[in-house]
């Protein structure tokens, strides 16, 4: 649900939708990931780790915008999930964000896939 600013305009919002695909917990992210909204995604990952759900796929395909704050979060999430014995998959069929991952070399560091893992 979107909040509104004092003049009634919609605030930027990050939409997180959780689902399960085999052993993976999938977080589909809609909206804009930036330094203002990133904390919600960080908290969602913390919560999953706390619940012992450490096989996590972050689906950026529906994401409208992602900046370097979001990329920093992916690196941190990968480390925290690995430390907890799990793994991170980044799902991205979104050409704009895929370009960012390629440009920064994160496509080599992160497990980036075109589709949500099936098992």
């Amino acid at each position: 649900m979107r909040g509104t600013t004092s003049d009634g305009a919609p605030e930027p919002e990050l939409g997180l939708s959780l689902s399960t695909a085999g052993a993976w917990t999938v977080i589909a992210v809609s909206g804009e990931i930036d330094m203002y909204t990133v904390e919600r995604l960080r908290e969602a990952i913390r919560q999953l780790i706390g619940e012992g759900r450490t096989q996590v796929a972050i689906d950026l395909t529906p994401t409208e915008f992602c900046d370097s704050t979001g990329l920093g979060l992916l690196i941190g999430a990968r480390r925290r999930l690995a430390d907890a014995g799990g793994a991170l998959v980044v799902v991205c069929a979104n050409t704009r964000i895929r370009k960012l991952l390629d440009m920064t070399g994160l496509d080599k560091v992160l497990d980036v896939r075109e589709a949500v893992p099936s098992e």
Partner: peptide, 19 residues
Amino acid sequence: DAIEEDTLSEEITLIVLGG
């Protein structure tokens, strides 16, 4: 976590800008 990721992000901003 946030501080570490912010530090990473500051470095990544320049990589993104350069690219």
